[in-house]
């Protein structure tokens, strides 16, 4: 166990070092959500009730989807190059390789989420501290699951990586658009509404909106938590299996 902890810290520090050396990178990575927040959010202002309470959680869910995907992409690049192979020849714990990377993805997500919230405050976003904390905890569960899934996908896609691009492009955007992150699904035609409600992300988005409005007891919070935990469980199972089978095949 102590070896596992030490190895997790080793992997986590390795992944975090480039961020600490160049923190500006975090902001550049946030370019898209920031644009959405300022350009799109302003447009929505007034269109969907208290728009910031509605829009900020959506942006956070969006970041929580793209962040772990980029963690998988980083792993893929290392699998295609020689650096992952080099690490695999060391006694470094295999599970720690994934856990450390996931932790780095979560930490960067948290920092970016806090930044978004702080930037939204002057725009009129109301801070419900308990709800925001619960919301972030839920998003972290989702992030762990998605991170593990994207690691498994990266392992499966090496050495050429095509599969990764195909899946991440064809899954990520529909998941996002069908979750009502950017526009409400309320006025969607029946079939779209059905598709939206098969999408686990939709439940998380609805839960986030309830939580960020300070409503901790709404039924959607429960559904969202269940959805996030299911994604986490599926991700951890798949990711661990991919690691066991070896990232070297």
């Amino acid at each position: 166990m102590t070896t596992f902890l030490r190895d997790t810290v080793t992997v986590f520090s390795r992944e975090l070092a480039p961020v600490l050396r160049q923190p500006v990178g975090l902001l550049i990575e946030m370019g898209q959500p920031l644009l959405f927040l300022f350009l799109f959010g302003v447009l929505l202002d007034g269109a969907v009730g208290s728009s910031w309470q509605w829009f900020v959680p959506g942006i956070l869910v969006m970041m929580c989807l793209t962040g772990p995907m980029s963690a998988g992409y980083t792993l893929l690049v290392e699998l295609i190059g020689g650096s992952m192979e080099r690490l695999l020849v060391t006694p470094l714990n295999r599970t720690a390789m994934l856990v450390g990377r996931t932790m780095k993805a979560l930490v960067t997500f948290l920092v970016q989420a806090v930044l978004i919230i702080v930037l939204a405050l002057p725009l009129g976003f109301e801070l419900h501290a308990a709800g925001v904390l619960a919301g972030l905890a839920q998003l972290m569960a989702l992030g762990v699951g998605l991170g593990a899934l994207s690691f498994a996908l990266a392992v499966k896609s090496a050495p050429d990586g095509t599969l990764f691009y195909i899946v991440s492009q064809s899954v990520l955007f529909p998941l996002l658009l069908l979750s009502g992150v950017l526009l409400p699904l309320d006025s969607a035609p029946g079939w779209l509404d059905v598709l939206g409600h098969v999408n686990p992300v939709t439940y998380v988005v609805e839960a986030q909106r309830a939580l960020f409005s300070g409503d901790l007891t709404a039924p959607s919070v429960l559904y969202g938590t269940v959805a996030a935990c299911l994604v986490a469980a599926a991700g951890l199972y798949t990711g661990n299996a991919a690691m066991r089978r070896g990232v070297t095949a």
């Binding site: 390795r14 070092a17 480039p18 980083t74 690049v77 290392e78 190059g81 020689g82 650096s83 192979e85 080099r86 020849v89």
Partner: peptide
């Protein structure tokens, strides 16, 4: 290994 061992971001 045959490929370069160091990670590009590091």
């Amino acid at each position: 290994g045959q490929k370069n061992s160091a990670g590009e971001n590091h």
